[in-house]
């Protein structure tokens, strides 16, 4: 079995499962938010805030946030290891990919902490 030091779970099969599992959670959350928006055409601040201060919704939001982080990492990793390679970019490919992956990790960390702050605080 080939393992890769930068893959999410060091295993392609686990990455595959994480991507699918998180996809289902994110699909459910997306449909939920769209349903909320669709059900209340004249949305005001109080009702909008009430949606996110509800405890089950808060839980759903934060679980979806974690799913989002796993999902984006596996996705961005896959794209990076497909296109930012030695074959496509020459000798600097691995270095460029490492910079790209570091940027992705940092942005995902920002999204995670920022998102927790939003959902926990609301």
């Amino acid at each position: 079995m080939v393992t890769n030091a930068t893959s999410f779970s060091r295993s392609g099969l686990s990455d595959w499962i994480i991507q699918r599992f998180s996809a289902v959670i994110l699909a459910a959350y997306t449909l939920f938010i769209l349903a909320v928006l669709g059900a209340t055409p004249e949305l005001d601040y109080e009702s909008w805030r009430a949606v996110f201060s509800n405890n089950p919704v808060r839980l759903f939001s934060i679980i979806s946030l974690f799913a989002l982080c796993g999902h984006t990492w596996v996705g961005m990793w896959t794209v990076g290891t497909d296109y930012l390679t030695g074959r496509q970019l020459g000798g600097n490919g691995t270095f460029i990919r490492l910079i790209y992956q570091s940027f992705c990790v940092l942005l995902i960390a920002v999204y995670l902490l920022w998102g927790i702050q939003i959902f926990w605080g609301s």
Partner: peptide
């Protein structure tokens, strides 16, 4: 997918602003 990776930032910003205060 790659575009959405950056779109998340915009969505979080709008979400935070809209939930912060009236």
């Amino acid at each position: 997918g790659v575009a959405l990776f950056f779109g998340i930032g915009v969505v979080l910003y709008l979400l935070q602003l809209s939930l912060e205060s009236e």
